[in-house]
């Protein structure tokens, strides 16, 4: 086995150890906090959406009507489909954009 091949194996082993240690100590991923929120469509009042109100808009605060079906708000996870939305076919907010029914 050549010198460089030996070195390569040694460094591979060291890297495996480092990765293994990093995996075991990596605390709760940073995204966990934002993960407990979800995008909820159809629950924001006019102009109060967090983002996404269709083509040609620049996101936050651009929804034109109350409970607009393609505008979302960030809400605690699990609460979206329990939030009333008069325009939603299900009567509650949805995790995907929807076409509003007459409120």
């Amino acid at each position: 086995m050549s010198q460089s091949t030996t070195a390569r194996y040694a460094s591979a082993a060291a890297m495996a150890l480092a990765l293994s240690a990093a995996l075991s100590i990596a605390a709760t991923p940073a995204a966990a906090q934002s993960m407990d929120k979800e995008k909820c469509f159809g629950v924001s009042l006019k102009g109060k959406n967090d983002c996404a109100a269709g083509p040609g808009t620049t996101c936050a605060g651009t929804s034109k009507i109350d409970y607009q079906g393609n505008a979302w708000s960030l809400v605690p996870k699990g609460t979206c489909d329990k939030t009333a939305s008069p325009t939603s076919p299900t009567g509650f907010g949805q995790l995907e954009a929807f076409k509003e029914k007459k409120a």
Binding site: A14, A18, A21, A22, I25, A26, A27, P29, A30, A31
Partner: peptide, 13 residues
Amino acid sequence: DLVTALGSLLHWQ
């Protein structure tokens, strides 16, 4: 320190 470096990559996903 490679462990801390890889840990940052994992922590921040």
